[in-house]
């Protein structure tokens, strides 16, 4: 992962801790040690054990040079890398089964910006559910209300669903399937 400027042990561990905090406390903004955060997340989670869908050739090349790349179509991928709204047909993404819901995909979604203040952003999001004391809000640029609704749609029959990580620059926000989101 040095090809991406990411230390394969220290940076990856710090990125994982950011992911843990982001998933356990949905709606909070966590920071990764390297930018862009979506590449850091992929470098942390992806190897040949999981199918990856990505259009980002730099990530694909870096993974491939370490023998860690196993490409998959959107419908079969365990990790789906989305670069901007509308780049991927979210309906096709795997949501696991009732018996093995953890087979549902993780979506790493690159957006333009993430902010704590929803009013300062183009889309304000309110999050509630496990990990959230009552409700938490954050703001995002580069994600449409339709895409947010599509995430919701994918988790209607919880525990099936997908787990989303929004990433911009060094910031990430986790939207695990257990939470409800609303446009604010």
């Amino acid at each position: 992962m040095r090809a991406l400027g990411i230390d394969p042990v220290g940076d990856v561990r710090a990125t994982f801790r950011a992911l843990v905090d982001a998933t356990a406390r949905p709606g909070t903004i966590q920071s990764t040690p390297t930018a862009p955060a979506d590449r850091a997340v992929l470098a942390t989670l992806v190897d040949h054990e999981v199918g990856l869908y990505t259009e980002d050739d730099r990530v694909a090349d870096a993974l491939s040079s370490e023998g860690r790349l196993e490409r998959a179509a959107v419908a079969d991928a365990d990790v789906v890398h989305v670069d901007g709204a509308g780049a991927v047909d979210l309906e096709a993404v795997s949501r696991g089964t009732l018996k093995e819901p953890s087979d549902g995909a993780s979506i790493v979604y690159r957006v333009d910006a993430l902010r704590e203040d929803p009013a300062a952003s183009r889309l304000g999001v309110a999050v509630s559910g496990p990990g959230v004391p009552s409700e938490r809000t954050f703001g995002v640029d580069g994600l449409t209300a339709d895409e947010l609704a599509a995430f919701e749609e994918l988790t209607v029959d919880f525990p099936r669903g997908v787990d989303v990580v929004l990433a911009a620059d060094r910031a990430i926000v986790g939207l695990p399937r257990s939470v409800d989101t609303e446009v604010r």
């Binding site: 992911l19 843990v20 953890s102 496990p130 787990d163 695990p176």
Partner: peptide, 12 residues
């Protein structure tokens, strides 16, 4: 371990 941990947190 990390992939499993994140899925576990996502499905309490």
């Amino acid at each position: 371990v990390r992939r499993a941990t994140l899925k576990a947190i996502a499905i309490p």
